[in-house]
Amino acid sequence: MQWLPGCSCPLCPECFRLHFTVGVRERGVGALGCPSCGRPDLRDEAQRLWYWSTLEPQLRRCLDPDTFSLVTRKLTELELLRDPQFLWCPHCSFGFIFEAERGPAQCPQCHQQCCPRCQLPWDPRHSSLSCADFGSWLRSKETPGPSQGLGVFLGEMGIECPQCGQCFALARGGCLHFQCSQCQHQFCAGCGAQFHQPGSCPSPQCHLRGSLHGHHPRDCLFYLRDWAPDRLQQLLTAANVTFETEPPPEALPNPTGQCPVQEQKELGATLRDENCGRETAPGQAGLCRGHYTEYLVSLINRHGLDPAPLYGPAELRAAAQRHLAAGRSRRRPGESEAEHLLRLRRMLGEEAPVRPRPPRAICK
């Protein structure tokens, strides 16, 4: 029998080997503690470093050279990603250390430059603009064409862990609650907000502390997925943002009339990407209501559009309670209902503004 550092749970040699051989490929090194008791806590830096340094001789003896090399490479990447000065080049995916406080950061492999914070391609104008303002300026300079719109939405199939930077392929149609297999960080796939376990929310006044929850911005798909498409279109139209109602010219013929977006589906004990298959409706770009809604919300996110102007009274009060400081959403003495709602709408825009979010990059 063999034992892992930090616990007394016995493993037979074959179980020990399979735990690391399969786990390093499917779950990542951040989840390879004891399969029985889960110890040690690999989120703690001291325990993590002690665990892997003690375990290294056993792994070298038990694993084949390729798997052992993969374990050590992922450990190296994990430690590098914890370094705030480590960057992945957005042009060629080469990793390097950038020690300066401001950009541009130049990749030593491809020699392209980017901003070390937002990783957008560098432009001298970024020197006087924040990352959010520079991203907005770049989007304002884009020329609409077939490479944008629905085609871009259907090509955005990557998701990056906001804690460790690990990149994953993501099939559409799944749950918005995502857990990174590398560092176990739980976050919303729509906006990147952290999910908190019951009782672990750092906000002492949070009324959701007793349940699994996240604090999503009000333009997140988590809230807007229940809006009707025509209501989302109204928000886009008011901001002069174009959207598509017919399939893009490069789309393949779809004689079935069913939604062609790829989804990950469970078939017995396996997972397989297949067409969505739900019915489409006219004016929804050849997609079902759910995927067309997701496309419209992606445009809202990309342009930083605030849904608050379309809120009804109940929605406005709920949003104010979620996003404003405790007590700020209460009605003042002598304040009329209309004045109260107008003040809530103004406070949301000033104290909890919606920020533009760039489209997802395709994971390599």
Rank of each mutant, 00 (worst) to 15 (best):
H323F: 01
A285F: 09
R322I: 00
P282L: 03
G327D: 03
L296P: 09
L287R: 07
G312T: 00
S298Q: 04
H303R: 11
P307D: 06
A308V: 08
L299P: 11
A326C: 13
A285T: 10
R278M: 06
N275H: 05
E315F: 08
H323S: 00
P282G: 02
C276W: 10
P282V: 07
E274I: 12
V297T: 05
R317F: 06
R328E: 11
L305N: 11
I300K: 05
E279Y: 01
L305W: 09
Q321W: 14
R330S: 09
L299G: 10
A285E: 08
P309E: 12
P307Q: 07
G283R: 11
H291M: 01
A325E: 15
G327S: 01
H323C: 02
A326W: 12
P309H: 05
A325T: 08
S298K: 04
E315N: 06
Q284W: 07
L310C: 13
H291E: 01
R289D: 15
A320M: 11
E294R: 06
T293K: 03
H323V: 00
P313G: 10
L316M: 15
A325N: 10
G277M: 10
R317C: 14
L287P: 09
L310A: 15
E279R: 07
S329D: 15
G327T: 01
L310M: 15
I300A: 08
P309I: 04
T293A: 08
L296T: 09
A285R: 04
R328K: 07
C276D: 09
L316A: 15
D306M: 02
L324P: 03
A326N: 14
R328Q: 12
E279Q: 08
S329C: 12
G283S: 13
L316S: 11
T293L: 04
E279K: 07
L299V: 12
E274G: 03
A320R: 02
A314D: 12
L310E: 14
R322V: 00
P307N: 07
Y295K: 01
I300N: 05
A314M: 03
P309G: 09
E315S: 13
L324Q: 10
S329I: 03
L299E: 13
H323R: 00
N301S: 12
C276F: 08
A326H: 14
P282T: 04
R317H: 12
E279S: 12
E294W: 02
A308I: 00
R322M: 02
Y295L: 04
E274Q: 11
P282Y: 04
T280N: 05
L296H: 12
H291T: 01
P307I: 11
A318I: 00
G304I: 07
N275V: 06
N301Y: 02
A318Y: 00
G290R: 14
L287Q: 05
A314N: 05
I300C: 11
S329N: 13
R330A: 07
L305Q: 10
G283M: 11
Y292H: 14
E294T: 10
L296E: 14
D306W: 02
S298P: 06
R330F: 05
L310Y: 13
Q321P: 08
Y295G: 05
R302V: 01
G286A: 03
C288W: 13
A319Y: 03
A308E: 07
E315Q: 14
C276K: 09
